Amino acid sequence: MKKLELKFQNEEDKTVTITLDEPVEPADPALINAAMDAILTANCFYSSGGDLVAKKEARIIERNVVDIQL
Results as ranks from 00 to 15, higher is better:
14 K>A: 12
56 K>I: 15
19 T>R: 07
13 D>W: 06
67 D>T: 09
9 Q>L: 09
33 N>Q: 14
52 L>T: 05
23 P>M: 05
10 N>I: 01
45 F>D: 07
10 N>E: 02
36 M>G: 10
54 A>P: 07
19 T>E: 13
47 S>P: 07
36 M>D: 10
70 L>M: 03
9 Q>C: 04
67 D>N: 09
47 S>T: 13
6 L>M: 15
64 N>K: 12
50 G>K: 06
60 I>C: 03
5 E>H: 14
60 I>W: 00
69 Q>V: 15
67 D>Y: 10
41 T>C: 01
33 N>I: 07
54 A>H: 11
34 A>S: 14
47 S>K: 03
66 V>M: 07
66 V>D: 08
20 L>H: 07
44 C>D: 05
39 I>D: 02
32 I>H: 02
64 N>L: 11
50 G>S: 10
27 A>I: 15
69 Q>L: 14
53 V>R: 08
6 L>N: 01
55 K>N: 04
14 K>Y: 05
54 A>K: 13
20 L>R: 08
9 Q>S: 09
61 I>L: 09
69 Q>C: 10
63 R>Y: 10
66 V>T: 14
67 D>R: 06
51 D>Q: 14
21 D>R: 10
25 E>R: 07
49 G>P: 05
23 P>N: 05
44 C>G: 09
58 A>W: 00
23 P>R: 02
35 A>W: 00
28 D>R: 10
21 D>C: 03
62 E>I: 05
19 T>G: 04
25 E>S: 07
28 D>M: 01
44 C>S: 15
4 L>C: 06
34 A>D: 15
42 A>S: 13
1 M>N: 09
15 T>Y: 03
64 N>P: 02
48 S>D: 14
57 E>L: 05
46 Y>K: 14
32 I>L: 01
64 N>E: 14
17 T>Y: 00
27 A>D: 08
8 F>C: 04
47 S>V: 10
61 I>R: 13
35 A>I: 08
34 A>T: 14
20 L>N: 03
33 N>M: 08
3 K>D: 11
62 E>F: 04
23 P>F: 00
18 I>V: 15
54 A>L: 05
12 E>C: 04
33 N>S: 15
46 Y>G: 08
7 K>C: 05
52 L>Q: 07
28 D>T: 11
22 E>S: 12
58 A>T: 06
40 L>H: 12
62 E>M: 07
30 A>G: 08
8 F>Q: 02
3 K>W: 09
51 D>H: 11
70 L>P: 13
61 I>Q: 13
60 I>V: 15
2 K>H: 12
51 D>M: 07
42 A>I: 08
4 L>I: 06
21 D>F: 01
22 E>T: 14
12 E>D: 09
49 G>Y: 01
65 V>E: 11
17 T>R: 00
19 T>P: 03
27 A>S: 13
1 M>Q: 10
49 G>R: 02
29 P>T: 14
62 E>C: 06
42 A>W: 10
33 N>G: 11
28 D>A: 06
48 S>R: 08
59 R>E: 05
1 M>R: 12
2 K>F: 04
